[in-house]
Nucleic acid binder design. Structure first.
Lengths: 204, 204
DNA sequence: TTGGATACCATACATTTGTATGGTAAGGTG
DNA sequence: CACCTTACCATACAAATGTATGGTATCCAA
């Protein structure tokens, strides 16, 4: 029979992998080779090298070259979900890259957040009629083709707002979903569509 | 007045922080000081040291001593996410474990879905006044202590509903958040609280 | 005008860390 | 047996990386 590599992990290899994963999750950083060595009481770094090599070969670890603490457990990768930075309540400067104000992040399913996305904290109640409340988070997708009726995030004269997009003839309207508010005609104003709202998340 | 430190980040500090965060999220590992230096074109590592020091002082970064690539943006530690099965629109049998009907799943952040959770597809419009619409998904946590005012999933006479929980004196009410609907008095009915709604997710 | 915060530069150094090389030993297999 | 895999040890080295020290300049508030 051909020399066939065992795709399953040996008990020891599993142990090493578990340690790396645990360390990664707990500290947010992978352990160094010597951390691993110390944890298992190995008397040589080479032992760790061997195990890491095996784990990489078996597809359990990713490792960039020559980077300190660069081991990444493949299985532990945030699968099927994305972490989005939350921007919001930005007064001046809008969402310009260098002036982003960081409000943390949320994790959403990849099926919700496809392509390049970011998150936004909803302020105000201009979209209350479709159930978007202050404090909710919306997932915004960049670079999508905007169609009539889409909910969009727009930068109008330096202010970020969420509205429904309506284009009739040559007129562009940003329509609030709130009976008590009036649509904004931005046809002659300076505005910029930041992206399209593709999802909403609320925490109780 | 005492020397008071500015808790807000300067634009440059914000930029450095953003870079670190982005790198951390993208690569799963923080950048080294020299990575940061190169990114911003600084001619000295010391500049990075200064910024990092400021960011730590302002509570934006965590840093273990002498560890390579040890910078961690506070609150951005890689948390896991959970995949929750979606149950819902179940007529008979409610949510009993053995009769659950699988409607797929959603992925949510662990910060949202703590403990034992499942997801439910919202049907009907009994909670429309707090922005819960048909088709939305709610995350339901099992085994939590229910307090007055909590949104709960209840099994009332074989039917699953989402309502606000109100207990006054000896009476237990399940209150719909819809002006046009009446509270249900379940004091004398057979009912069971399935769990507490902790989050909501909507896809546009 | 003194002091603090911000924002850089320059240089040197010690440690951490990944990497390379080579050796020992047990267990299983053709 | 020869050969492979697993599982260790020992040692050395170079690169990556954090750290320390000290300097310059601007802006702003007390």
């Amino acid at each position: 029979m051909m020399t066939e590599m065992n795709k399953d992990l040996s008990p020891q290899q599993q142990a090493v992998f578990n340690y790396i994963s645990a360390h990664y999750e707990e500290h947010g950083t992978a352990p160094s080779y010597r951390d691993i060595q110390a944890h298992f009481g190995f008397k040589a770094v080479g032992t760790v090298q061997d195990h890491v090599k095996a784990l990489i070969q078996k597809g359990k670890l990713e490792k960039p070259d020559k980077k300190a603490r660069g081991l990444i457990p493949v299985g532990k990768k945030l699968e099927g979900s994305k972490r989005l930075s939350i921007y919001g309540e930005v007064a001046a400067g809008g969402l310009r890259q260098t002036e982003q104000i960081d409000l943390g992040s949320i994790v959403v399913s990849e099926t919700l957040a496809q392509g390049e996305c970011f998150a936004l904290r909803v302020v105000g109640n201009s979209m209350i009629d479709i159930g978007m409340y202050e404090g909710d988070h919306v997932v915004v997708q960049r670079g999508t083709r905007i169609k009539n009726g889409d909910i969009v995030v727009a930068l109008v004269e330096g202010e970020t707002t969420v509205k429904r997009f309506e284009k009739k003839g040559g007129e562009v309207l940003l329509v609030p979903e709130n009976k008590r508010m009036q649509p904004i005609n931005v046809t002659k104003k300076s505005f910029e569509i930041q992206g399209k709202v593709v999802a909403l998340q609320r925490k109780f």
